[in-house]
């Protein structure tokens, strides 16, 4: 009983810590994309790794340059309601361009972290040179580490 009381008191003091000092959550609201190999006309979908993935937003710095990946994370532009990305999956493959249209909303994450931009996906437009189809799993792009989009390939 005595120890239970001490534990209770201690939790109270932990709860009493200055919450503006630490940011315990990620402020990055990145859009997660994974790659799926479509066999048997959509009946079997397996995660697939592309050997040389190159990714960047058109006119911006390179996010990935010829690295093996089964999934990628991209940061949508907080300055506009749409952004475009260049995605090349292998050296021999034709690159695709992904266009995202979305709405932006400032969101108070926590007292320690402050505000972050959260996005709600509206439309995804793509060229289909290497990509076969796109599936949106989750339209809400917030700080939860989610896979929002699946890209399907047939090869």
């Amino acid at each position: 009983m005595k120890y239970l009381f001490l534990i209770l008191l201690f939790t109270a003091f932990v709860a009493c810590e200055d919450e503006t000092k630490t940011c315990d959550q990620t402020l990055l609201a990145d859009l997660g994309i994974n790659f799926k190999k479509d066999s048997l006309d959509g009946y079997i979908n397996k995660d697939t790794i592309w050997p040389k993935v190159t990714l960047y937003a058109l006119g911006k710095d390179t996010i990935l340059s010829s690295v093996a990946r089964s999934s990628v994370f991209i940061s949508l532009s907080p300055l506009a309601d749409s952004s475009r990305f260049y995605l090349k999956l292998d050296s021999t493959k034709t690159p695709d361009t992904l266009t995202f249209r979305y709405t932006r909303k400032p969101n108070f994450v926590s007292a320690g972290c402050g505000f972050a931009t959260f996005f709600t996906l509206d439309t995804v437009i793509s060229t289909y040179h290497t990509i076969d189809s796109i599936h949106i799993n989750n339209k809400e792009v917030n700080s939860s580490n989610d896979t929002h989009l699946s890209l399907f390939f047939i090869y």
Partner: peptide
Amino acid sequence: AYKLHSDYWSS
């Protein structure tokens, strides 16, 4: 007043 930072978009 609040600020929203983005490293990648340097904004």
